[in-house]
């Protein structure tokens, strides 16, 4: 019972299948159809517009951006773009802010992800049981999902305002602090503020996915566990979690990629300041692009993609033995 879906997922397409709404198999085309010119024409004609757009406006810029990383390429001088080898990479690694930015990136991802996961999981568990107005509750709690990260940043920038911010006001009223903290003016508290905003924003995503995964656990499993006299906590860790483990693991991977690639909140709240102290790699890269340092921005982009690929590969390897153990 428990094993079946996990075994089925052990295919190369598992990442595709579980990430963005692709049912891996069972799309209904099992019969072999003979090739006809007409069929070929339909495939081509239907698919061509999508391929053209994605090719011209997504893949072409990415590929041409990759070679920009090895050239001097600045908005101030678009004609003379000599090949400079790894010079842009050296510039990045020797930048005095590099250490801070690398550390910030790790803190940003980990400190956002862990609370998002825990609160999202708890919320999903507590929403699984039906109660009156559950639908309304979900709609209200899931709404941040419809707002852009940039606007969330603006909302929290106002709430964390040092002089007239409502967060200071509440903390003073509760008695936790005596006078207002200039949250966004100090590097450490600014980092705390942007992470709080990101946690608030990201819980919804985990809650939606985990709730859907929980609802996919067959009721018989709970009945069997109850018959065996398992306690509720034990049922959670021995039945529920293993059943949805693959979904959880892949969701976490997607979120790591997504949070790393998510400069919007920091951009809106601090713009990377004060003094570059709250930049993460992606906000830094956008700053470089907007300053016209395309060569350096592209090199940063390549570094980000490389890190994500290596991380994803190790992560997928690490969660595989787990599957075997259960399957």
């Amino acid at each position: 019972m428990v094993q079946k879906p996990l075994v089925r997922r052990r295919r190369p397409s598992s990442l595709a299948a579980s990430s963005d709404g692709v049912p891996g198999e069972g799309s209904g085309v099992s019969r072999r159809r003979t090739f006809t010119a007409r069929r070929g024409f339909i495939i081509l004609a239907f698919f061509l517009p999508a391929a053209l757009f994605v090719g011209v406006f997504t893949y072409y810029p990415i590929v041409s951006g990759a070679q920009m990383a090895f050239r001097r390429w600045q908005l101030s001088n678009l004609i003379d773009n000599p090949w400079v080898g790894f010079h842009n990479f050296v510039t990045i690694f020797t930048d005095p802010s590099f250490g801070t930015i690398a550390l910030n990136t790790v803190i940003w991802v980990v400190a956002s992800l862990v609370p998002q996961f825990i609160i999202g999981f708890a919320l999903a568990l507590w929403l699984r049981r039906r109660f009156r107005f559950r639908g309304l509750y979900q709609a209200l709690v899931f709404f941040p999902w419809a707002i852009s990260g940039f606007l969330i940043g603006i909302l929290f920038r106002w709430m964390f305002n040092g002089e007239f911010g409502v967060i200071n006001d509440i903390l003073i009223k509760v008695g936790l602090i005596d006078k207002g903290i200039p949250w966004l003016a100090d590097p450490t508290t600014a980092m705390v503020a942007v992470i709080v905003a990101n946690v608030w924003y990201g819980v919804t995503f985990f809650a939606i996915i985990i709730l859907a995964a929980l609802q996919s656990v067959p009721e018989e499993l709970f009945e069997a566990a109850a018959l065996d006299g398992a306690s509720r906590t034990r049922t959670l860790f021995a039945v529920t979690v293993p059943y949805i483990a693959t979904t959880l693991a892949l969701t976490v991977l997607l979120r790591v990629i997504w949070i790393l690639n998510f400069p919007d909140i920091i951009w809106a709240m601090t713009g990377g300041g004060p003094a570059n102290q709250t930049h993460i790699v992606t906000t830094w890269m956008i700053t470089m692009t907007q300053n016209g340092n395309y060569g350096i921005a592209s090199a940063l982009g390549l570094i980000i993609v490389a890190i994500l690929m290596v991380f994803s590969a190790f992560y997928l390897l690490a969660i595989r033995p787990n599957k075997r153990q259960i399957g």
């Binding site: 390429w73 990629i257 890269m285 592209s298």
Partner: peptide, 22 residues
């Protein structure tokens, strides 16, 4: 399918500079 999925992993702004020049 993979080519489509990969675009979801790579942030659009990696192509910001090249897109601007284009």
């Amino acid at each position: 399918l993979m080519a489509f999925l990969v675009t979801q992993m790579i942030p659009a702004f990696i192509a910001l500079g090249p897109l601007y020049l284009m």
